[in-house]
Amino acid sequence: MLHVALHILRTIERVLLAGLMLAMSLGYVINVIARNAVPVLAPRLAWIEEATLIALAWVVFLGLGLALERGRHITMSAFLGRIRGPAKAWIVGAINLVGLLFSLYIAKIGVDISVFVYNSGQVSPTLNLSVIWLYGAIPVGFALLALRYALELAGCSRRFDAARATPA
C-alpha cells in the first residue's frame, strides 16, 4: 500500500520536475524569438519571465524530497562513511529527526506566509497572479521533505546506502 502510494507520489514529482524544466526553457526561448522577430509582441509575452521565476521556485522546493530519497543533497559524509554499527545508526537517526523537525517547522511557516500573502491580496506585477503561487512552493516542498525524513526515520528508506549505490 505504502509502496504504491509512494510510487504514485514519485511519479507526480518526476513529471512535474521534468515538465517544468522543459517548459521554462522553451518559454524563455519563445520570448527571445518573439522579441527579435516580432518586437511588437514582446509586451504580450512579458508574463513569461515572471512565470519562469515562479516555475523555478516550484522546481527548487518540489524536488527537495526526491533529492533526499536519492541521497543527492550536498553532505559532508566522510566521517559517516567511515563508521559502522550502532554509532552510525544513532547519528543517522539524529540527522533524520532533526531533518524531520526542521522541515515541518519551515513547512508550517510556509503555510503561514502563504495565508498571509493570500489575504493581503498581493499580486505579481505582470501576470496579476496572487503571490501565493510563489510562496505556496515552500510548504509543499518542505512537507515532501518532511515525509522523506519520516520514512528514513521509520526505516522504510535508506538514503545513505542509496547514495553509495548510485554510480558516481
Partner: peptide, 12 residues
C-alpha cells in the same frame, strides 16, 4: 502600454 502607444516595445 506607454511604449506600445508610440509603436515601441517594452522589454523587462
Amino acid at each position: 502600454e506607454q511604449f506600445a502607444a508610440v509603436g515601441a516595445s517594452a522589454v523587462s
